[in-house]
């Protein structure tokens, strides 16, 4: 049976390897590179958000701080600001969901 639609449409998950697929490839030439990508920018790493260390508490079902009673969600009210690092993706609004 070959499905007519990818089943992930009905149960979207982040892709394997992270929300944004990784590539080490460099840009191709102008004839094959999507036009809009000429306006792509590298986010300013100096403006990135630092996230506090956290552990997941299985009993409370939330993340808790390391060496602090403050819960991580109480310490981070800024949207994630991308810094060009693949390890620091932008907010869900800006990233692929699947």
């Amino acid at each position: 049976m070959i499905p007519v639609a990818h089943p992930r449409e009905a149960f979207p998950l982040s892709p394997e390897g992270g929300r944004i697929p990784h590539s080490s490839e460099q840009p191709s030439g102008p004839d094959t590179r999507p036009w809009v990508l000429r306006f792509a920018v590298l986010p300013d790493s100096a403006r990135a958000t630092a996230l506090p260390p956290a552990l997941y508490d299985e009993d409370r079902q939330i993340s808790v701080g390391v060496d602090t009673d403050l819960l991580p969600y109480m310490q981070t009210h800024s949207p994630t600001i991308p810094d060009g690092s693949p390890a620091n993706p932008p907010p869900l609004d800006e990233g692929p969901k699947d």
Binding site: H22, P27, P43, P96
Partner: peptide, 22 residues
């Protein structure tokens, strides 16, 4: 203006890049 019709972020050359409204 032009903006991506889907996700505006991608990783290329090991760097995360974004395309915002132009």
């Amino acid at each position: 203006i032009c903006k991506p019709v889907a996700s505006p972020v991608f990783i290329e050359g090991d760097q995360l890049k974004a395309v915002y409204t132009r």
